[in-house]
Simulated assay, not measured.
Amino acid sequence: MTILVLHAHPVATSFNAALHRTIVERLRANGHNVDDCDLYAENFEPRLSTAERLAYHDPRHPGEPIHPYAERLLAAEGLVLCYPVWNFGYPAILKGFLDRVFLPGVSFQLVDGVVRPALHDIRRVVAVTSYGGSRLNAFLMGDPPRKLVTRVLRAMVRPGASVSYLAHYGMNVSTPASRAAFMRKVAARMDAF
């Protein structure tokens, strides 16, 4: 299976970076073709330009700055997002990727004003993330990051696709044991991809 891994953390020595390495290693060890898209390493530009916004509904074309990223997304059969939750949302670089690449004609079609999913080749989506705060705090805030994956991304991929959300809550008070247990959980999920 061809799997696009979107990683969004600027620090190579972070726990999130270690999760990213585990994800890529386990997927490759299990024979998957991994397209490893480290948004910071690739210096992805997250800002939607005026021209891009004005052309948002226009048909896509190869000359667009985001075209190579759209092609990578369209080639994927699986999608793994690896990122920290910051301010109850995606890091800006990942949010910018979604704003600039998940466009009409790429991730969805507008048919008579109705959104129809277009990423029908994606059969599995897994989000791997960490929160500074507790699960209770996230719940009380409505846990927007979880909903963005389990509702919004789910609506853009193949109907019935498997969608998993793996979160390590309480990073501010995490221990080596809690982080190791979560790493094992992530490795096991990648082995079962």
Results as ranks from 00 to 15, higher is better:
70 A>D: 09
84 P>D: 06
75 A>V: 05
72 R>Q: 05
65 P>G: 00
84 P>W: 01
66 I>A: 04
63 G>T: 14
92 A>R: 13
87 N>H: 11
88 F>A: 06
83 Y>N: 10
92 A>D: 10
88 F>E: 12
82 C>W: 06
79 L>W: 05
64 E>A: 06
84 P>N: 12
69 Y>L: 15
84 P>I: 02
79 L>A: 07
82 C>K: 10
69 Y>T: 12
90 Y>C: 07
94 L>H: 08
89 G>R: 15
61 H>Y: 09
73 L>R: 07
89 G>S: 13
98 L>H: 09
87 N>D: 14
98 L>K: 11
76 A>I: 06
81 L>K: 13
73 L>I: 09
90 Y>A: 12
63 G>V: 10
97 F>V: 02
95 K>G: 08
75 A>C: 07
86 W>A: 00
87 N>L: 13
98 L>I: 10
75 A>L: 08
76 A>T: 02
89 G>F: 10
65 P>H: 03
65 P>C: 01
95 K>A: 00
97 F>D: 09
86 W>Q: 12
71 E>S: 11
97 F>Y: 13
79 L>G: 00
74 L>K: 10
98 L>D: 07
70 A>W: 04
92 A>P: 04
83 Y>H: 10
88 F>K: 04
90 Y>F: 14
76 A>D: 08
75 A>T: 06
68 P>T: 00
77 E>N: 03
90 Y>R: 06
81 L>M: 01
69 Y>R: 11
94 L>W: 14
60 R>I: 04
88 F>Y: 14
94 L>E: 14
66 I>F: 03
90 Y>H: 03
99 D>T: 07
79 L>Y: 04
87 N>F: 15
87 N>R: 11
90 Y>Q: 02
75 A>Y: 02
91 P>L: 09
86 W>S: 11
65 P>Q: 08
60 R>E: 03
88 F>R: 07
78 G>V: 09
89 G>M: 10
99 D>K: 01
78 G>W: 03
79 L>E: 06
98 L>A: 01
96 G>L: 03
79 L>T: 08
86 W>K: 02
69 Y>F: 14
82 C>L: 08
73 L>N: 09
85 V>C: 04
79 L>S: 00
82 C>R: 05
84 P>Y: 07
63 G>P: 15
95 K>S: 05
77 E>H: 11
62 P>K: 13
63 G>E: 15
85 V>G: 03
65 P>T: 05
70 A>I: 14
73 L>K: 06
67 H>P: 03
95 K>Q: 03
80 V>P: 05
86 W>D: 10
69 Y>E: 15
97 F>S: 14
70 A>P: 13
60 R>A: 05
95 K>W: 02
92 A>N: 05
81 L>H: 09
61 H>W: 11
73 L>F: 08
96 G>C: 04
93 I>A: 02
60 R>P: 07
77 E>W: 05
71 E>C: 12
85 V>L: 02
62 P>M: 11
85 V>Q: 08
80 V>L: 09
68 P>F: 06
67 H>V: 00
76 A>C: 08
69 Y>V: 13
78 G>I: 10
73 L>C: 01
65 P>D: 00
70 A>H: 00
63 G>L: 15
80 V>M: 09
